[in-house]
């Protein structure tokens, strides 16, 4: 469908928020705590954080929660009864204040969860989520969305993308999907007709740092490079990068038992953990951190494009910001690009 452009007055945002709440929608929006912005269910417009470049965690948790319970069981002697995922529990959710580099990530997650077998739980959450994203009007050195096919004003994955027109200006609303139109219908008076707006000049400037196609080609011959070892020597092997990433989807399946009853769930995992690939025998195919770091980069920039036709990186820069050892993915990608093979 064609993108519809509307103008939303700066004072109207709060009204829109209230209308969404009145329609019994859960609204997740960025909230500040301990100096970090993160998505939380929000009850009042005033608690939404404004001054942040990027939330610490991506908003993937709304659709791919860190713990997703998918069955309950009850044991009775030798018998067991099980109850599957309760799809009714998935209610309409609005994601408010997402950046374009997050919304693109939902497309990547969608590819992972549906490339072969269809993950209905993921799909149920995605279909019930309305994504109201906001263009970036500022960026920092960690941002590189433009290098991986995105941009600060990208509408990809959004239902409605808002772009703030100037420091104290109104908002351009680009209604991208039918879900977005449904929101407009809820509060049509807030979405004014508008002339075409040059939104680009209001966007943050994120220069292109590398060519991901080139990187992909290079990686095909890069597996045995000594760079992996050099780059990863300072990596501490935590899972911070994976857990803040909008596209990392590795998970573990665990049971939670309470006597005769309990549940089974998937929970986030990270390929950076030393135990991720370890066999019961003790054999570990990726026994050192350099192999695990290589897996992370290769998976995002080589394996995924090849298998799923999507890149596993949106250029949000969260992993670099979160890393306690300052492993900067952008820096590493540039250095891979610079290597002559």
């Amino acid at each position: 469908m064609n993108i519809e452009r509307r103008l939303v007055r700066k004072d109207s945002l709060e009204k829109l928020f209230d209308i969404l709440r009145q329609n019994k929608k859960t609204v997740f929006a960025p909230v500040m705590k301990n100096g970090k912005a993160s998505f939380k269910p929000v009850g009042s417009f005033s608690s939404i954080a404004e001054d942040y470049i990027q939330t610490t965690q991506s908003s993937k948790e709304v659709i791919f929660p860190r713990v997703e319970k998918f069955l309950d069981y009850e044991k009775n002697g030798k018998e067991v009864s099980i109850k599957g995922f309760d799809y009714q529990s998935v209610t309409e959710t609005v994601l408010w204040g997402v950046r374009p580099c997050d919304t693109i990530g939902f497309g990547t997650l969608n590819s992972i969860f549906n490339w072969d077998f269809k993950d209905e739980i993921f799909n149920a959450r995605l279909s019930k989520t309305i994504i109201l994203s906001f263009s970036c009007n500022k960026s920092d050195d960690y941002c590189f969305c433009t290098s991986v096919g995105g941009n600060p004003g990208s509408t990809a994955g959004s239902d409605i993308l808002f772009t703030k027109l100037g420091a104290d200006g109104d908002y351009l609303a680009e209604v991208v999907t039918e879900k977005g139109q449904a929101i407009v219908a809820l509060a049509s008076e807030l979405f004014e007709k508008t002339e075409s707006v040059e939104k680009e000049k209001f966007l943050a400037n994120v220069p292109v740092k590398f060519n991901q196609e080139e990187i992909r080609k290079k990686l095909e011959k890069f597996f045995k490079s000594s760079q992996w070892v050099e780059q990863s020597l300072k990596c501490l092997g935590c899972g911070a990068c994976a857990f803040v990433c909008p596209t990392c989807a590795c998970f573990d399946i665990q049971d939670d038992a309470h006597g005769k009853i309990g549940s089974r769930m998937r929970c986030w995992d990270s390929c950076g953990y030393s135990q991720f690939t370890v066999h019961t025998s003790g054999h570990n195919p990726r026994s050192v951190q350099s192999q695990r770091w290589r897996q992370r980069i290769m998976h995002k920039f080589s394996y995924m494009p090849e298998r799923l036709s999507v890149y596993g990186c949106t250029g949000c820069g969260r992993c670099s910001r979160a890393c306690p050892a300052d492993m900067n993915i952008l820096e590493h990608l540039i250095s891979i690009q610079e290597v002559k093979i």
Binding site: F113, D116, I253, R266, H279
Partner: peptide
Amino acid sequence: LENRMKCGFGKCGHCNVGKVYVCK
């Protein structure tokens, strides 16, 4: 191959070796 697996259908990432999912 006997790689560690969790989901069995190419999502959880555990058995990924190169571009291959051992489970798929």
